[in-house]
Amino acid sequence: MSAALLRPATRGDLSGLPLDVAPRLVGGVLTTVVAGETVAVRLTEVEAYHGAGTGEVADPGSHARMGRTARNATMWGEPGHLYVYLSHGIHSCVNVVSGPPGVAGGILLRAGEVLNGRDAAARRRPAARTDRELARGPGRLGATVGLRHPLHDGIDAVSGAERAGAVARLELLTTPLDVVASGPRVGVAGVAGTGAFPWRFWIAGDPTVSAFRWGRGASAAQ
């Protein structure tokens, strides 16, 4: 993708609620520099999550659904920072904080295509059999861009300020994609993972997009 089609993300771009902002991130690019190695990933799939009191509909699938905690504190902060959390005690997953300060929200970066830094990405993801698998899934994307919990939780992808030896920058398309698919979030349990929450957004047909699976009890809750 030509760099001419991208521009740096601003706080204003990310000040809306995650459900409104998430589709704008699709097609954007997250670039990180970690230990001197640069990796750029085009975002092909994201999911919106709201915190307690955010928006008109309570989100039972959010880490912030019960309020502010030490774990989810970054979600309540300034938009444009990255909430990096640990999944299953192993995988570092990356979210873009969205919403006004004090209003919790995050947009999970589920999948992407490596544009630059393929060699570094491959070293970080030795289990990937093909390039399409390097960042196909949120844990894989986190590993590919080199961001780690808790070291990089809160890193600022708008200012590009260094945190724990890493820099992150988010760019958005100057013209948003015309068509972005939407549907239930992947692997989210209960009603939060059903069609009642079509809060996942992706580029239809892109080979890097995650394979869909129902979360525990989600299909039965349809």
Rank of each mutant, 00 (worst) to 15 (best):
R24C: 09
L25A: 09
L25Q: 11
V26K: 06
V26N: 12
V26S: 13
G27R: 04
G28V: 08
V29T: 04
V29P: 08
V29Y: 11
V29D: 07
L30E: 13
T31V: 11
V33E: 15
V34Y: 01
G36S: 09
E37P: 04
T38P: 00
V39E: 13
A40S: 15
A40P: 05
V41H: 13
R42W: 12
R42A: 15
R42L: 15
R42D: 14
R42F: 09
L43F: 06
T44L: 07
T44G: 08
E45V: 08
A48M: 09
Y49W: 11
Y49A: 09
G51W: 03
G51P: 03
A52S: 13
G53I: 00
T54P: 00
E56T: 12
E56F: 02
V57W: 01
V57L: 14
V57N: 03
A58L: 07
A58S: 15
A58C: 00
D59K: 01
D59N: 04
P60H: 11
G61T: 05
S62K: 01
S62L: 01
S62N: 03
H63N: 04
H63P: 04
R65Y: 02
R65V: 10
M66W: 12
G67L: 10
R68D: 08
A70L: 15
R71P: 07
R71I: 05
R71K: 13
N72Q: 09
N72C: 04
A73T: 07
T74D: 08
T74M: 10
T74K: 03
M75N: 00
M75V: 00
M75G: 00
W76L: 00
W76H: 07
G77K: 04
G77P: 05
E78W: 04
E78Y: 02
E78D: 14
P79C: 13
G80V: 08
G80R: 10
H81D: 01
H81W: 03
H81E: 03
Y83E: 11
V84Q: 09
Y85E: 11
L86D: 04
S87I: 15
S87Y: 07
H88G: 02
H88V: 02
G89W: 05
G89L: 02
G89P: 03
I90F: 12
H91W: 14
H91G: 05
H91L: 04
S92K: 13
S92T: 14
C93M: 14
C93K: 02
V94A: 06
V94F: 10
N95R: 07
N95G: 06
N95L: 05
V97E: 04
V97D: 00
G99H: 11
P100W: 05
P101F: 14
P101W: 13
P101Y: 14
G102I: 03
A104C: 11
G105L: 05
